[in-house]
């Protein structure tokens, strides 16, 4: 059954975000002859539209107005509502991002419909869209159908692969105009201190938990990340470690922190509470060092070393360095 799907796109430094390309790709797989539209708001939207067409979109609703650059709820919701009115989508996909967490429910409410948040899968099941998402801190997953239309889903980064780019593809562009007034005034923005590689972009994430015993344990964790190479490894932390003030909240991995999907996730002295696993279970491989052989982290790890991190991690650093 053909279905029209609208993707609420996002820009990263003026270019199509990788998650938007993934969402557009999945929309094109599920459209079944229907139309895939995308909204792109802010400086660079016009150029990003070309990338969206190559990623699978048929139509782009854009505004290059810099007034959209810093996400503000009301004008964004207004612009997307405008696009929804023209595209008449059966489904709306939004990234589970700072934008999507805010937009998803508001768009659903205004369309008289429902949203499934933080989905890891949206699929066709006998003509019906079904959305699957983790819940209960990652202990369980729930699959939902929608009693109302359009079905709205916010979708996790890297839940889907983009399609092979359709080189030279083009599509229709519709202007969404200038941002409307907002009930919200942004009075300041402050970037968290984080040098170098962002944790979500790292191929290897080395994380430390409460079992480190103190903030100084993170020096060992950082040294291991450094041994892997600062150009591909970043340091994360469990919520317990962040709550204790041992490491910055910006590096927190878990349900209420960052969701990371590296090639290799190295869990040092992390018990593996479900809410932590919800932030790293999408990693290609998890390995763990823990003193407790029964720690939950080993249930999802491919390799593990049972032992005191103070002895194991320095040896691991030397072995990684020796391996070049």
């Amino acid at each position: 059954m053909a279905r029209n799907i609208l993707v609420v796109g996002e820009l990263e430094e003026g270019a199509l975000s990788s998650t938007t390309a993934e969402l557009v790709g999945q929309a094109s797989r599920l459209a079944d002859g229907g139309q895939v539209s995308v909204t792109l708001l802010g400086s660079g939207a016009g150029g990003a539209a070309s990338a969206a067409f190559e990623a699978g979109a048929d139509r782009a609703f854009t505004s290059d107005d810099g007034g959209y650059d810093d996400y503000n709820s009301d004008p964004w919701v207004g612009a997307v509502e405008n696009a929804v009115g023209q595209a008449s989508p059966d489904a709306i996909f939004v990234a589970q991002s700072v934008v999507g967490r805010d937009m998803g429910p508001r768009i659903a409410a205004r369309q008289g419909s429902a949203v499934a948040m933080d989905c890891i899968n949206v699929e066709d099941d006998g003509g019906e869209l079904k959305a699957t998402r983790p819940c209960y801190g990652g202990n369980a997953q729930a699959t939902y159908s929608f009693a109302t239309s359009p079905a709205v889903a916010t979708i996790r980064a890297k839940a889907f692969d983009p399609i092979e780019p359709r080189a030279g593809a083009s599509g229709e562009t519709v202007d969404l105009g200038a941002p409307a007034d907002s009930r919200t005034t942004i009075t300041g923005r402050e970037l968290a201190e984080s040098e170098g590689l962002q944790i979500q972009d790292a191929a290897i994430v080395v994380s430390g938990g409460r079992g480190l015993g103190g903030p100084e344990g993170f020096e060992t964790v950082e040294a291991l990340a450094e041994a892997f190479g600062t150009n591909r490894a970043a340091v994360g932390a469990s919520r317990a470690a962040c709550d204790l003030g041992w490491y910055p909240v910006s590096q927190q991995v878990g349900l209420t922190g960052k969701v990371v999907t590296p090639d290799l996730y190295v869990a040092i002295a992390i018990s593996g509470a479900s809410q932590h696993m919800a932030g790293c279970s999408g990693s290609k491989m998890i390995i763990a060092v823990n003193r407790d052989p029964d720690a939950n982290i080993f249930a999802t790890s491919k390799y593990g070393i049972v032992g005191d991190y103070k002895a194991v991690v320095p040896a691991l650093i030397e072995a990684v360095k020796a391996a070049g």
Partner: peptide, 8 residues
């Protein structure tokens, strides 16, 4: 995602 913002 990368910091904080203050809104009124």
């Amino acid at each position: 995602a990368d910091g904080f913002e203050t809104v009124t």
